[in-house]
């Protein structure tokens, strides 16, 4: 069935689209958590690309990379949550716009 036999190019396009959504999201959104999610989206878009290329390549290298990326992303989540949380607790807001003490 053609529906289920999408070519790798489709995955790559999807990956690029996801990445772009994430990248644009970081630029336009203001809530720290949302920004954070956008970054995660970008990482996962990269994962998708890695796995797709791995598929084209015919070995599992790319999938292994995706594994590492997942770990890194998780560590990033932990660190990010910790920072966001401490900010939230000390000033009751998670909006990046409210973080404006540092200006030149």
């Amino acid at each position: 069935m053609t529906f289920f036999s999408v070519s790798p190019t489709h995955y790559l396009i999807l990956s690029a689209v996801l990445f772009t959504i994430g990248a644009v999201g970081v630029l336009v959104r203001r809530n720290a958590i949302v920004l954070f999610m956008c970054v995660e989206l970008m990482l996962n878009a990269a994962n998708l690309a890695l796995v797709t290329f791995s598929r084209i390549n015919g070995n599992l290298d790319g999938q292994i990379m995706a594994f590492f990326v997942m770990v890194v992303a998780a560590a990033e989540v932990v660190v990010g949550l910790a920072i966001i949380m401490s900010i939230f607790r000390s000033r009751r807001s998670a909006s990046v716009d409210d973080a404006n003490l540092l200006k030149y």
Binding site: G22, A23, L35, F36, A46, E76, G80, I83, I84, L102
Partner: peptide, 24 residues
């Protein structure tokens, strides 16, 4: 903390670019 969150968000953003570069 504000510095940390900025550093973190932008840093994560940049490393996401790095990673996508790796994929490409």
């Amino acid at each position: 903390q504000e510095a940390a969150i900025k550093y973190f968000l932008l840093g994560a953003y940049a490393s996401a670019f790095f990673l996508f570069g790796v994929a490409l």
